[in-house]
Simulated scan of single mutants.
Amino acid sequence: MSVVTVTMNPAIDIAAGIPQLRQTEKMRCDTPRFDPGGGGINVARTVLALGGEPTAVFPSGGHSGRLLEQLVADAGVSTHPVQVTGWTRESFSITERSTDRQYRFVLPGAALTAEEQDRCLDAVAKALATTGARFLVASGSLPPGVSPAFYQRLVERAALLRVPVAVDTSGEALRHLQGPIEVLKPSVRELSECAGRPLRTHDDQIAAARELIAAGVARIVVVSLGADGALLVTADLGRWFPPITQPVVSGIGAGDAMMGGLVVALARGWDLGDTVRLGIAAASAALAVPGTGPGRPEHIAELYRRLTEDTAESTPAPAWSAD
């Protein structure tokens, strides 16, 4: 089951810990962990953990870009890098061991020229055609120089190839989407910013999601509520799904893991309820691993079973395997 992901603003994610943050002092960190990062790359790693066959398309530049390519390949994900002039960015997170607080530092990506953006679009179209992808996932922020309409251009390219698209983005990129998108996954904060008003209740959030559906932007909207679970919204359905309690090692990439679970379930023809449950299970399992690593397959399966044990019509998921 092939899935192509697009990450226009990838990063090398560096994670380390220190005993305590101290102003101006030299603080000795633990041995760092290096992960390939960026929305689509994180999604691809979860798709792989769930037995899918992901291909990651991303711009890559400089020595850091070559390291990113190696990290993605080492993770077992098929890579389709697009060489660009600017260097691939790095981001880093520090966990203060005395408090378990995590501090995240996100650097800006390198600007992409119009020609580099066009080559990224061409690379995506080629990957979709050669892999026979069942889904295209566009996830993450856009780097400097990239029009907020870029993801809409991507959606239109995929529509010509009859490949359904899942999108997870924010800000102007979210507001410029016109569809047709199969599944859109904003956080409640991103949805509120897009709607231009506070969304304090589930009813408010469902109404805002339905505005996007009525406008033809997306067929399905899954609103990530963080520790409060998720909302599934379609034209005729609005349903809240509770979270699952899980110790948090790192909160980075959990939303991307949710998207990975959603697209795997949809590509396999699961019903919408089980699709959201798998997304929540994948996100919750990702919280239990350091850095931006995906959840362990057996842990995702265990959490999915816990979420569905009282739902007789749920899809059994004893193990994950490629179709």
Rank of each mutant, 00 (worst) to 15 (best):
I181D: 00
G52L: 08
P297T: 08
A283P: 12
T169V: 10
P316N: 04
V222W: 01
A254L: 11
E211C: 03
I12N: 03
I94S: 07
P81W: 02
P32R: 11
G216R: 05
T46N: 07
E313G: 03
L287P: 06
A11P: 03
G179W: 00
A16V: 11
A230L: 01
L262R: 08
L287C: 15
A215G: 02
D204N: 10
T292R: 01
F241Y: 14
S192W: 04
A227T: 04
V221A: 10
R200Q: 15
P243M: 07
P316H: 04
A149W: 04
I12G: 03
V167S: 05
L128A: 13
H299A: 13
I280Y: 10
G238P: 10
P297S: 09
V249Y: 04
G279K: 08
D323A: 14
I14S: 13
Q102P: 07
D118R: 15
A312V: 11
P297F: 07
E90D: 09
P243S: 03
A133W: 06
L278E: 07
R119F: 01
S2Q: 05
G196V: 14
S170E: 14
G145V: 01
N9P: 05
G251S: 13
R277A: 05
Q70S: 11
A56E: 01
G179V: 04
G196A: 09
